[in-house]
Amino acid sequence: MNYQFDFSFLWDPDNSYWRDILHGTWLTVELTLLAIVLGFTLGAACAIGSTSRMPALRRAIAVYVEVIRNTPLLVQTFWLFFGLASIGFKFSAFTAAVIALTVNIAAYTSEIIRSGIESVRKGQIEAAESLGLSRMQLLFDVVLPPAIERVLPSLSGQFVLMMLATSIMAQISTEELMAAASRIQSETFRGFEIYIVVAVVYLALTVALRFAFALLAWAAFPRRRRLGTPV
């Protein structure tokens, strides 16, 4: 075999495919950031809900988490995108992708944060109760900060996996990086080359996302910044 690699299509003056790749990359980033923010919020809410005193709420959250964790993201996405459309809810592919990713990542986030909450010792909670803190104050001032600090490595790992999983959203024609790659492939027939480029872009995004999380941890957790020890 003597395959000739040819990346020149990237700079093809008529098509400037590198622009398409850049544009797709930007949409992937947008999709990822939106899903992280929304998914973290929903996931934290579910984690808090799963410590509630209402058994019905706890059970509902447990079922949601089990269903999400035991089915593929792609099937969840098809179910939402085609299913909701069939009963009259029409979303753009981008919106549908954000919803599917959020619903998916929130289940994992919820499990991770719940394990963090369970790691907070009972004495801490009794101390806070004894000081007269309300349930909400106790949660936001005493329980969640160390809980989230402890599980941050798992959370950031999970968010990186989700960023990589946005690549499947091309299946409902979300115009992100993979969709751009697929279109370029069909126009240039340089499949191997284009996916090498795409792989490098995702690797760079992975490194950037990990770095962003390290930065966030540095900014959000002053104790760790000063002592460098796990809380």
């Binding site: 990589l164 690549s167 790659a181 992975t206």
Partner: peptide, 11 residues
């Protein structure tokens, strides 16, 4: 771990 599985499949 930094490359999406669909990209690996295409590769």
């Amino acid at each position: 771990q930094g490359i999406p599985l669909p990209v690996l499949i295409f590769l």
